[in-house]
Amino acid sequence: MSKPPKKVTTVRCACGSVEVEARGEPIMTTACYCDDCQEGARRIEALPDARPVLSPDGGTEYVLYRKDRVRCEKGAELLRPHKLQEKSVSHRVVATCCNTAMFLGFDRGPHWVSVYRARFQQPAPPVEARVQTKFKPASVTLPTDVPSYPSYPLGFMLKLVGAQVAMWLGR
C-alpha cells in the first residue's frame, strides 16, 4: 500500500465558499493558448462578477495534478461545469457563489485535472512552459522566461504519461 502524499495545497474561490484540495506535487504548471482555453476563459469572464481567467498575454495558466489527488473539501454543491459544446469531454468548473473558475476537468479519458493557477494563494507554482502558442493572439509577444511550444512538447507528454503510470502503480 502506498503512502499518501505529504504536501497538501488548498485552493479557494474568490469568496472562500469553495475549497479544493490537491495532494502531492503537481505534474507541471503551464500556460495554454489553445482556442478552447481562450474561448472557455472568455465565457467564464463574461459571467457576472467573474474574476479574470486569461493572463495579459492571452494564455490560461494551469497547475496540473493527478485526478486521484484532487477533491473538493468545501462547497461541492456550488461547483458547476461549463462546456464549450454539448458533446465536449472537457469542462471548466466554476464556483457559482462568485463565478470563479476553479479547474478544467474531463468527463472521461485524461487522468489529470488542470487547476486554474490564479486560485492558488501566493506563491503559486511558477509556469514551466507555454503550450499551444500557435493559437496566441497575433498582437501578443510572449515573454521568454520559460520555453514556448506551438503544440504539446514531448517533455510535457512524457510527464503526463509518467503521472499516469505512477497512478496505476499506486505511487
Rank of each mutant, 00 (worst) to 15 (best):
R42N: 05
C34S: 05
R119F: 02
P126L: 13
V113A: 00
Q85S: 14
S114Y: 04
R92Q: 14
A124L: 04
L84R: 01
K87C: 03
Y33P: 04
F103G: 01
T60W: 00
D57Y: 08
Q85C: 08
V53I: 12
C98G: 08
F156C: 06
P126I: 06
G109E: 09
S88F: 01
N99T: 11
T144A: 15
S88E: 11
T141C: 03
R117C: 03
S90W: 10
R71A: 11
T96I: 03
A46V: 02
F120D: 01
P81L: 11
T100I: 01
T141R: 12
L78K: 13
R117N: 12
Q38E: 05
P143S: 15
C37K: 05
L54C: 12
K67I: 05
P153Y: 06
L104H: 09
K136W: 05
N99M: 08
F120T: 02
Q132D: 11
S90V: 09
F156D: 09
F103E: 02
T96V: 10
V93G: 03
P143N: 08
F106T: 14
E128F: 06
D49Y: 07
L64D: 10
G58Q: 11
G75Y: 10
V113R: 12
H91S: 15
L142E: 10
G105E: 11
